[in-house]
Nucleic acid binder design. Structure first.
Length: 105
DNA sequence: AGCGTGACGAACT
DNA sequence: TAGTTCGCCACGC
């Protein structure tokens, strides 16, 4: 626990319910800033890999992003499907996007 | 302390 | 509509 910006990201992502996804923009919005890039950085480092379902974090376009799009393996995409997240044309429907994160605790 | 990078986003052409 | 460019913030060197 460092209470840093990155940790906040892990906190938020960890709050994402199963079967739903969230975009970097959403997270940034929740934190009150637009550090979309920093969020990606935080997850990229992701020291809490198993504690942070990074696969639930996708781009605003609805696409997975670089954590699965770069890899030929669509395991990540299938993983999302396994969580009831239907991916159409390689993109997640806006309906699966999480609304907001009540980090209130 | 400064420069460059990156799992992004929005705007422009 | 599709492709490209700039801007954004935090982290690493």
């Amino acid at each position: 626990m460092k209470n840093s910006f990155t940790d906040r990201v892990y906190e938020i992502v960890g709050q994402v319910p199963k079967g739903k996804v969230i975009s970097y923009g959403q997270i940034g919005r929740i934190m009150g800033n637009k550090a979309y890039r920093a969020i990606g950085q935080a997850l990229a480092k992701n020291p809490y890999a198993p504690f942070v379902p990074c696969h639930r974090v996708i781009k605003s376009d609805g696409r997975l992003g670089g954590f699965g799009g770069k890899n030929d393996n669509d395991n990540k995409a299938k993983l999302l499907k396994s969580e009831s997240v239907a991916i159409k044309d390689g993109k997640v429907g806006q309906e699966f996007f999480w609304e907001l994160i009540p980090i209130d605790g």
